[in-house]
């Protein structure tokens, strides 16, 4: 992932990541039950809130708002709980990476919001790792492209 040039580009890129995350959680949620499923619903709701806020924010600017797509490519088919949990970790880490880039590209309240998103998704990725039994459940540099 290359660093976007300015705040609008970085937030637009974060919006496309939120679209993809929401789509992916639709595939993740159906493979989960109980507490996992509730956590997936909460995660999806968080991504929807950020998507909505970004659409509003970017609509008031001069640039165009990136459009959602009908579908997104998954890195692998999700057929069971372990696969769903693994994809949930990946979704949170990937979305966090776009917000990390937005932290660098913005200042003031925009940076505060980008940091809050990065933190929230990093914590959620850790929770999904724990649910999946992945150790260690933390990474040293959340959101940093590997």
């Amino acid at each position: 992932m290359t660093a976007p040039a300015g705040p609008t580009e970085a937030l637009g890129a974060a919006l496309t990541a939120e679209y993809a995350a929401i789509w992916a959680y639709g595939r993740i949620g159906v493979r989960l039950t109980g507490a996992d499923r509730r956590a997936a619903r909460e995660a999806e709701a968080a991504h929807r809130r950020r998507r909505d806020a970004l659409v509003v924010q970017l609509s008031t600017g001069a640039g165009t708002v990136p459009a959602d797509h009908a579908g997104y490519a998954l890195p692998y088919p999700v057929t069971d709980r372990p696969g769903a949990l693994r994809l949930a970790v990946e979704v949170e880490e990937r979305t966090a990476a776009f917000w990390r880039a937005a932290v660098a590209a913005t200042t003031g309240p925009d940076r505060d919001r980008a940091l809050a998103a990065l933190v929230e998704y990093a914590v959620r990725a850790t929770r999904w790792r724990r649910a999946a039994g992945i150790t260690p459940s933390t990474v040293a540099f959340p959101g940093r492209p590997s």
Binding site: R100, V103, A104, L115, L118, V123, T126, T138, F141
Partner: peptide, 21 residues
């Protein structure tokens, strides 16, 4: 500045995940 903010942001996030663990 921008060139430091990304690293600091990852450190903030890492410490938040540590609290979780």
């Amino acid at each position: 500045p921008a060139d430091r903010a990304a690293l600091l942001a990852s450190i903030v996030a890492a410490r938040a995940t540590h609290v979780e663990v």
